[in-house]
Structure formats: structure tokens, C-alpha cells
Amino acid sequence: MSDLNTRIKEVIIESLELEDITPADIVDSAPIFGKNEKGEGLGLDSIDALELGIAIKDKFGVTFSTVKEETKKHFASVDALAAYIAEHSEG
């Protein structure tokens, strides 16, 4: 687990005031919103999505496309989000 992944998880927990969950409980490849067929996933809802988008923007200095489908892809999992941030934060 990379440092970036852990930081993202911390931001998710902190910004959404999630209870009973630690970064270790979040599976890197599992969906952030809803759940996959294995039942993994944070199960966050659309209100959380808005909140999380703002938090990620603030913490990592990245912006997201206004095209909904594209953004959705970036938020598919912690891994996907980390990849997007790694690509966009510096350059």
C-alpha cells in the first residue's frame, strides 16, 4: 500500500466523518461508491461524492473534469483515485 493511497483513505475518513473504519479497512481496489460483486466497497452515497470531491481538490490540488462519466471513473476506487492524483497533481 503506497503512502498516497493511505493519505487518500485518511482524507476520505476525515472529510466524511466516517466512523468505525480505519485506512486498513478500506480495500484499495474496491469501489468507493456502492459495492462490487464481492460485497467490497465503502458504500458512500452521492452526497458524500460532492463532499469528497471538494476535499480531494483541497488536499491534493487537483481538479476534476465536469464530464460526469469521466469523473466517475477516477472515483472508482482508491487505486484509481491515486493514479489520477499522481498524474495530475504535479503537472
Binding site: E19, D20, I21, D25, G39, G43, D45, S46
Partner: peptide, 26 residues
């Protein structure tokens, strides 16, 4: 673990109600 109990009830509720109105804290 408490998280797994939360998840059990959360998953059960999602059969009937939307995620937004399903309890977030337990």
C-alpha cells in the same frame, strides 16, 4: 468488528431504501 455489523445492516437496508437515507452512523 463493529464495522462488519454496520455493513450487515446497511446492506440489508439497501434492498428497501436508498443509500442516502440509510443510517450512516450506528
Amino acid at each position: 468488528a463493529k464495522l462488519s455489523i454496520n455493513n450487515y445492516f446497511h446492506d440489508y437496508l439497501l434492498q428497501f431504501i436508498e443509500n442516502t437515507v440509510s443510517p450512516k452512523k450506528w
